[in-house]
Design a protein around this nucleic acid. Structure first.
Length: 1028
RNA sequence: GCCUUGAUGGUGGAAUUGGUAGACACGAGGGACUUAAAAUCCCUUGGCCAUAACGGCCGUACGGGUUCGAGUCCCGUUCGAGGCACCA
C-alpha cells in the first residue's frame, strides 16, 4: 500500500522547485500582473514561530491561486535587516551586527523553505546591503531637494494644480525667493515648519548658512530643532509611533522630551493626501480609522484675539465695554498691538467664551504676563517643566495660573482673563484657545476650579453639573440678552483674576453684527466662519495632528546619511557617489564625548574635490569635511521595499520605468495591524513622494490590505515572593486588583509575589513539574517551591503574544517534521478567520493530517497503483467536484480559507464514498488543493502523468449544470417553527409548494383545529404556514 | 470619554447576507478490529423533558422592537479586543 510519505514528498518537491526555478517570475507584457506581498520580517535570533507563517501562507495561497488563473504573479520575500536587537547583540558581544543578522537570515530562510512558499528568491532584498540602501539614501536626497505646495509657484514650469498638493523642486522656491522673498507665498500653500517673512533683498543679502537654515524650513527632508522623544537607555531619539504610553515601544524604557537638532521628514505636508487616499484603497475599517485618528484632521476657525492690557502698567482699574475700538491699531509700534490667535472647531460658541488659555510653552506667555503676576507665572512654568510627558499624560488634575492680562473677544467685545495652563498643548493648533466652559468639559473643569463664569448657549442645556459637549442642539443666548454674568462674583481666594467683563452683546463690523440664535450648531459654525472671514477677524483653518517624522537615530546599525557638513551647512554627497556605505567601527557604543557610535569611525570624512570618503584626520574644512554621524530609523528601509522587488538588481535606478509601469503597485498586502501608525503611514507617504517624482506609478502603494491576526501562545507563570527565592503555588496567593496599573497583584502572607514566566515544558496541565523547572534554568535550581495541601504546585496561565522571552513559542519546524508542511499550512488556515487572533493549540492538527491521508487514499486506494482511470465520472462525483470548485473559488476571493478546508474534507469523504476514480474529477481536485497543499498536489499531479508543475495547471472552472437537482429539500414551518423538511420539485412554484405542504400527511397534526392565517413559500428556501 | 470591532455547544469555529442554528474539526462517551497497544473504522455528543416509538419546550451576551420568519435588521444595556485621547 502506497503510504502518504510526506517527508519524502516534500523534500523531493523542494529540490524540484529550486532546480526548475518554478517560482521565478519575469515581466511579461502579454500577461496580466498580480502583485502579492507580505510585510517582510525582521530576522530575529529566535527564528520563526508558528505565528509568522500565518500571513505568508494566506498570501501564498492567493498567489498560487492567481497564477493558476493565468496571472503573472509577483510574490517576493526579503528582510527588514536593520534593527535594535542586532545592535544590542553587537554591543554585548563585540560582533558586527551584520554577522548575526546574516546568520539569522540564513536560519529564517531554512525555516521558510520547509513550508513550501512560492517566493521568487531571486528578488530577495535585505535593507542593510549597500545596493539596497543606495536607494533609501537616494530618496532621502530627493526629499531634501524638494518642497511641497498645493499650487505650483509662478517659477514652476508646470501650471496645473494637483489636488492636495505635490512635491516640487526646491530650486523653484529659491527662484521665487530671488524674485519676491516670501511676499505672496501664502497663496501657494507651501508647507513649512513656521511662517517666515523676508523680502527678496533680504534673501539675497543672506549668507550661505542663513540661506540653508531658511530653506530647511521648507524642505521635505530637513534638519530642524524640534522637541524629540529622547530615550536615555537606548541612547537615541524615537518617532512618535515608537513611543507607547510614555515609554519606548522596544524595551519599555522611559522617554523624555528634549530639544535637539534632528533630520525630519515633512510627512505632515501630505496629511490631506494621506487622508484622501484612504478612500481609494481596500483596507479594513479599523486600520483606516486608526490612520484617520493619527492624521487627526480637524476643520476649524482661527480667530485673532487682541490683548486688552499691555504688561507695563500693572493697574487694577478696569474700563468697561467696547474695548475693541479703543485698542491701539496694529503697527502703531512696540508691544501695544499685542495679539494672539486661537484655534477652535466650535466657532458657534464665541458668545460663551469666558477666558482664554495659553500653553505654558507658548512664546506669548512671556509677553502677556503682567509684572504683578510675573512671579506666579514663573513658578507655574517651573512646575510644568518639572513634569514628565508621562506624568502629564496620566495626571489630569486642573492646574493653571492667571497671566494678569485680558483678551478681547472680537465678537462680543467682552474682556476675558488670559490664563496659562498645561491642558493646552503648544504643539497643536496655535497653542492658544478660547475657553467655553459651558460646552467643553476641560474648560468646564478649569472654570469650576478657578470659579469662572459658565454661560450656556444651547437651548435646554443644563450645565450645572457638567458641560454640554454634544454637537446637537439649537443655539440661544448668542448674543446674550443683557444679564450679569453668573458665577465668580465673590472675589474669593482663587479669584486674582476678574472674570469676564462685558455684556455679551454683538459687536458691529461694517454695520453687521453676528446673530446665531435659533440656528443649529452646524449652521452656527458655518455662519460664524462666514462672519469672521467677511470681517477679517480670522480665517478658516484645517489642522492636522500628524507630526513630521523624526528621521535620525543616534545608533550604528542603520543607513548612514549621505550628508556632510560644509562649514556647518548640511550638504548632500553627490548622487553619483551613492551609496555611502556604513563605515567600520571598533565599538558600537557612543563615543566618550557623547557622539553617536559613528563617531568611532576613523574613515569618515568627505573629500569634496576627489569625491571620496577619507580619513577623519584629513578634515580641514576647506576640501575635506565631516560626514553626518546619525543613521536613519527602522522605517527608512521598509518604506519603499515593495518597489525594489519589482527590479531588485537595478544599479542605475531604484526601479526601471518599465518594471514600475508593469507591476504598478501591490495588489494584495498581508501583515500585522500593529504597523497601522508606523510603517503603513510612512510607506504611503514615501510612495506618494515617489509618485510625485514619477518613479512610482500609483499614488497608493498597497491596494488591498489583509491584517492577519496574531497567533498567541499560552504563557505559564510561577510566583516569586519579593526579595526571596520562594515560589508559591498560585492557589495560595491573594489577589488584589490594582486600579492604577490596571492589573492584578498577588500577595503571599502579606508580601507581594511577582509572576515569572516559565517554560511550557515544565508544566503539565495546571501543575508545575518541580524537577523539570529545577533542571530547566539554573536560577530555579535551589529555589524553594511552596506547594498547596495536596502537595501540588499550581501555575497560572494566560494567552499572550508569542515571544521568546515568554517561553511560549511553538516552532513550525517541529510541526513540519511530525506532520509535514502541507498539514501545517492547512491547519493554520483551518484555525479560524485569517484576521482573527487566536491561541495556538496543536490539538486539532491531527484532523488535518488525517484528512490529507484520506485525500491521498482517493488516488491510491489501498494499493501501490494509482487508482485514477479515464472512465467518465458519475453525476454525483461531478456534483461533489463542482460544489467544491464553487466554494473554494469564492472562499479564496474573500480570504475565507478557514471554510475551504471543511469543503475539501466534505468533498473527499463524498468522493471516497462514491468510490470515484475518474481523472475527470481527480485531476481538477489536485489543482484545487494545490494553493493550500502544494507538495501533495505536485506529487499527485506528477503521478497522473504530468511533466510540468501543477503550478502551471489551469484553475478548474465552475459549471452550474452539475449542481442542478430535480428536487430540493426545504424546511417547512408552522407559525415560524420548523417542524420537518420536505422534498419539492426544483421548479415548484409557490402555489405548488404550499399545496404540497397542505396535502402532506405530516402537516395535518399542525393544521388540525387551526385556521390558516397566511401561507408563505420561497422556492428553494422555506415554506411557512401561519395558523391560529 | 470618542471611534472601530466583537460576543454562537466542553473547545476552534460554520451558517449562501432575513429563510432547516451548531457544517467541519478537536475533545468526550460508546462500539468494531486486536492477546494488547498504536493506527484505522463506525455510532452518540447544545440544554431540559419524554418515549416501545413518535415527539415537545428552551436556546446564538442581556432587555425590547420590526417581520410570516431574526445569530443576521433597529433601539437600549453589559462585557471583551484594538485605536485615539487634556488635539480645543
Amino acid at each position: 500500500m502506497k503510504e502518504y510519505n510526506f517527508r519524502e514528498i516534500e523534500q523531493k518537491w523542494h529540490q524540484n522547485w529550486v532546480a526548475n526555478k518554478t517560482y521565478k517570475v519575469v515581466e511579461d507584457e502579454s500577461r496580466k500582473k498580480f502583485y502579492v506581498l507580505n510585510m517582510f520580517p525582521y530576522p530575529s535570533g529566535a527564528g520563526l514561530h508558528v505565528g509568522h507563517p500565518l500571513g505568508y501562507i494566506a498570501s501564498d495561497i492567493y498567489a498560487r491561486y492567481k497564477r493558476l488563473q493565468g496571472y503573472n504573479v509577483l510574490n517576493p520575500m526579503g528582510y527588514d535587516a536593520y534593527g535594535l536587537p542586532a545592535e544590542q547583540h553587537a554591543i554585548k558581544t563585540g560582533q558586527h551586527p551584520e554577522i548575526s543578522t546574516f546568520a539569522n537570515i540564513d536560519h529564517y530562510r531554512e525555516q521558510l523553505d520547509k513550508i513550501g512558499f512560492s517566493f521568487d528568491w531571486d528578488r530577495e532584498v535585505r535593507t542593510c546591503t549597500p545596493d539596497y540602501y543606495h536607494w533609501t539614501q537616494w530618496a532621502f536626497q530627493k526629499m531634501f531637494n524638494s518642497h511641497f505646495s498645493t499650487t505650483p509657484l509662478p517659477t514652476s514650469p508646470e501650471g496645473e494644480e494637483t489636488p492636495g498638493g505635490k512635491a516640487r523642486p526646491i530650486s523653484e522656491l529659491v527662484a521665487y525667493f530671488e524674485q519676491n522673498g516670501t511676499e505672496g507665498l501664502e497663496q501657494y500653500g507651501v508647507a513649512c515648519s513656521e511662517e517666515l517673512n523676508f523680502t527678496a533683498d533680504e534673501w539675497k543679502a543672506m549668507d550661505e548658512k542663513q540661506k540653508s537654515d531658511t530653506l530647511m524650513n521648507y524642505r521635505l527632508a530637513f534638519m530642524g530643532e524640534t522637541m524629540v522623544n529622547w530615550c536615555p537607555q537606548l541612547g537615541t531619539v524615537l518617532a512618535n509611533d515608537e513611543v507607547v504610553n510614555g515609554v519606548s515601544e522596544r524595551g519599555g524604557y522611559p522617554v523624555e522630551q528634549k530639544k535637539m537638532r534632528q533630520w525630519c521628514l515633512r510627512v505632515s505636508a501630505y496629511s490631506q493626501r494621506l487622508l484622501d487616499g484612504l478612500e481609494t484603497i481596500q483596507w479594513s475599517e479599523s486600520i483606516k480609522e486608526t490612520q484617520k485618528n493619527w492624521i487627526g484632521r480637524s476643520e476649524g476657525t482661527e480667530v485673532e484675539i487682541k490683548v486688552a492690557q499691555t504688561p507695563q502698567p500693572p493697574k487694577g482699574g478696569e474700563q468697561d465695554g467696547s474695548a475693541a475700538e479703543t485698542l491701539p491699531l496694529q503697527g502703531a509700534g512696540g508691544a501695544e498691538g499685542l495679539s494672539f490667535t486661537i484655534f477652535t472647531t466650535r466657532a458657534d460658541t464665541m458668545f460663551g467664551v469666558t477666558f482664554f488659555v495659553l500653553a505654558p510653552e507658548s512664546e506669548l506667555v512671556d509677553q502677556v504676563t503682567t509684572a504683578e503676576q510675573r512671579q506666579a507665572v514663573d513658578e507655574y512654568i517651573k512646575y510644568v517643566k518639572s513634569r514628565t510627558e508621562r506624568e502629564r499624560m496620566i495626571d489630569h488634575t486642573v492646574t493653571g495660573v492667571f497671566s494678569g492680562a485680558y483678551g478681547i473677544n472680537p465678537i462680543t467685545g467682552d474682556k476675558c482673563p488670559i490664563y496659562i495652563a498645561e491642558y493646552v498643548l503648544a504643539g497643536y493648533g496655535t497653542g492658544a484657545i478660547m475657553a467655553v466652559p459651558a460646552h467643553d468639559s476641560r474648560d468646564y473643569a478649569f472654570a469650576k476650579h478657578f470659579n469662572l463664569p459658565i454661560i450656556p448657549l444651547i437651548e435646554g442645556a443644563d450645565v450645572s453639573k457638567e458641560s454640554y459637549d454634544a454637537k446637537e442642539g439649537i443655539v440661544t443666548n448668542s448674543p446674550r440678552t443683557p444679564q450679569p454674568p453668573k458665577g465668580g462674583e465673590q472675589d474669593g481666594a482663587t479669584a486674582e483674576a476678574l472674570p469676564l467683563q462685558g455684556a455679551g452683546g454683538s459687536v458691529e463690523y461694517d454695520g453687521e453684527a453676528l446673530v446665531l440664535n435659533g440656528l443649529t450648531i452646524k449652521e452656527a459654525i458655518a455662519e460664524t466662519k462666514r462672519f469672521v472671514k467677511a470681517h477679517n477677524l480670522g480665517r478658516v483653518k484645517v489642522n492636522y495632528r500628524l507630526r513630521d517624522a523624526i528621521f535620525s537615530r543616534q545608533r550604528y546599525w542603520g543607513e548612514p546619511f549621505p550628508v556632510y557638513y560644509k562649514n556647518g551647512i548640511p550638504t548632500m554627497i553627490p548622487e553619483e557617489c551613492l551609496p555611502v556605505e556604513l563605515p567600520a567601527v571598533e565599538k558600537f557604543l557612543p563615543t566618550e564625548t557623547g557622539e553617536p557610535p559613528l563617531g568611532n569611525a576613523q574613515i569618515w570624512a568627505w573629500d569634496e574635490a576627489n569625491k571620496k570618503i577619507v580619513d577623519k584626520a584629513l578634515i580641514d574644512e576647506k576640501t575635506v569635511f565631516p560626514i553626518e554621524l546619525y543613521t536613519m530609523p527602522g522605517f527608512a528601509g521598509s518604506s519603499a521595499y515593495y518597489l525594489r522587488y519589482m527590479d531588485p538588481k537595478n544599479d542605475e535606478a531604484l526601479i526601471s520605468d518599465e518594471a514600475a509601469s508593469y507591476w504598478q503597485n501591490v495588489d494584495l498586502y498581508v501583515g500585522g495591524s500593529e504597523h497601522a501608525t508606523g510603517h503603513l503611514i510612512y510607506s504611503r507617504f514615501w510612495n506618494k513622494f515617489l509618485f510625485d517624482l514619477g518613479v512610482s506609478k500609483k499614488e497608493e502603494p498597497f491596494q488591498k490590505l489583509i491584517n492577519q491576526g496574531m497567533i498567541q501562545g499560552w504563557s505559564s507563570f510561577v510566583y516569586r515572593v519579593k526579595g526571596t527565592q520562594k515560589y508559591v503555588s498560585f492557589d495560595l496567593l491573594e489577589t488584589q486588583y490594582d486600579d492604577a496599573a490596571k492589573k492584578n497583584r498577588y500577595f503571599y502572607q502579606g508580601v507581594e509575589a511577582d509572576p515569572i514566566y516559565t517554560d511550557v515544558s515544565t508544566v503539565s496541565g495546571n501543575q508545575l513539574d518541580i524537577d523539570k523547572i529545577r533542571a530547566w534554568m539554573p536560577e530555579f535550581k535551589d529555589a524553594e517551591f511552596v506547594t498547596n495541601e495536596s502537595g501540588q504546585y499550581i501555575i497560572s496561565q494566560s494567552i499572550e503574544k508569542m515571544s521568546k522571552s515568554k517561553y511560549n513559542v511553538v516552532n513550525p519546524d517541529d510541526i513540519c517534521e511530525n506532520y509535514g508542511a502541507d498539514t501545517l499550512r492547512l491547519y493554520e488556515m483551518f484555525l479560524g478567520p485569517i484576521e482573527q487572533s487566536k491561541p495556538w493549540d496543536v490539538a486539532g492538527i491531527d484532523g488535518c493530517f488525517r484528512f490529507l491521508k484520506k485525500f491521498w487514499a482517493l488516488y491510491w486506494g489501498k494499493t501501490d497503483e494509482l487508482q485514477v482511470t479515464d472512465s467518465e465520472a458519475s453525476a454525483e462525483s461531478m456534483k461533489s467536484l463542482h460544489k467544491l470548485i464553487k466554494k473554494v473559488t469564492g472562499d479564496i476571493e474573500t480570504f475565507s480559507y478557514n471554510t475551504s478546508v471543511p469543503a475539501f474534507m466534505v468533498a473527499t469523504s463524498e468522493l471516497a464514498q462514491q468510490k470515484c476514480t475518474s481523472r475527470q474529477v481527480l485531476e481538477p481536485l489536485a489543482v484545487l488543493i494545490a494553493p493550500f497543499c502544494p507538495h501533495i498536489a505536485e506529487e499527485l499531479w506528477e503521478a497522473m502523468g504530468h511533466t510540468t508543475s501543477v503550478c502551471d495547471a489551469e484553475w478548474p472552472s465552475f459549471d452550474e449544470k452539475y449542481l442542478v437537482e430535480s428536487t430540493v429539500k426545504v424546511g417547512v414551518q408552522f407559525s415560524g417553527k420548523v417542524r420537518f423538511t420536505m422534498e419539492f420539485a426544483a421548479d415548484a412554484t409557490k402555489e405548488q409548494m404550499i399545496e404540497q405542504v397542505m396535502q402532506a400527511e405530516e402537516s395535518q397534526r399542525y393544521l388540525q383545529g387551526k385556521t390558516v392565517v397566511k401561507q408563505i413559500a420561497v422556492p428553494g428556501r422555506i415554506v411557512n404556514i401561519v395558523v391560529k
